[in-house]
Design a protein around this nucleic acid. Sequence first.
DNA 1: AGGTCTTTTCGAGACCTCTCGAATAAACGA
DNA 2: TCGTTTATTCGAGAGGTCTCGAAAAGACCT
Lengths: 103, 103
Amino acid sequence: MLGRWTPLSHPDITDVTVDDVLRALADPTRRRILRMLIDEGDRACGTFGLSVAPSTLSHHFRALREAGLIRQWDEGRKRMNTLRLDELDARFPGLVNTVLAAG
Amino acid sequence: MLGRWTPLSHPDITDVTVDDVLRALADPTRRRILRMLIDEGDRACGTFGLSVAPSTLSHHFRALREAGLIRQWDEGRKRMNTLRLDELDARFPGLVNTVLAAG
DNA sequence: AGGTCTTTTCGAGACCTCTCGAATAAACGA
DNA sequence: TCGTTTATTCGAGAGGTCTCGAAAAGACCT
C-alpha cells in the first residue's frame, strides 16, 4: 500500500482559508518552489534541484496542494505542478506575490 | 520568579526574517490583535476583548513582539502595544497590510 | 500594610511540522 | 520480463505551537 496511487485531490478555492495559505507560505523551501513555478513555468517535482530528501520534497508538494496553492497532475512517470495564481489572486488579492516578493 | 519582570526586548528590524513575520501572521488571534492596533490605535494588552485566557493572550503578544511585529512598553500597571508598521513596511513592502486585508 | 488590577512565567496536555530512511508502486524502455 | 526513473506512503525522532490553570510580581490606591 505504498507508492504513488492516491487520487490527486485539490481543494475548491472557496474552501481555502488565509490560515491555510499563510502556513503553507511560512516555509522557505515551499516559497522557493513557488518562485520557480512563477519564474520558470510548470515543472515536474523532480526538477527543482533542492537539497532535500525526496520524501521531504513530497511532503512539501502535498502541503502546497492541500493548501490550495498548486495544482498537480500526472504525465507518464512525472508529476507536474502549476501555481494556482489566478484563483488565489481572485480570493486573496496580491497575497501570494507580495509574500514571495518579501523573501 | 514569576510575574512581570523580564526586560522588554525587541528585535532590530534588520534581524526580522520573512519566516518570523509569516509564522506570526499565521494565527487568527494575532491577526485580530494587529487589526485592532491599526483600526483603533495603540492599546494595553487587556483591552482587546478576545475570548482567550490571559496567559494565552500573553503568549500571543510575546510571539508578536519577538517576531518584530509590535513594540511594547509599560505604563503603570498596563503594558501598551503598537504596530511597527513603518519599519515592517520598509523591510517587507505591503506585506502586513496585504495579509491583514486578506482575512 | 493590605488589597486589587494587570500581566507574566511555568508546567502540562494535545497536537502539528520538518526531516529523514525504508519500502513500495506505477510508467517506461530495452 | 527486468531494470530504471519518478514519486509516494509510512514510521519515527526532534522540536515547535496553542491552549489552559496556578502561582506570582509590580504598580496603584486606601
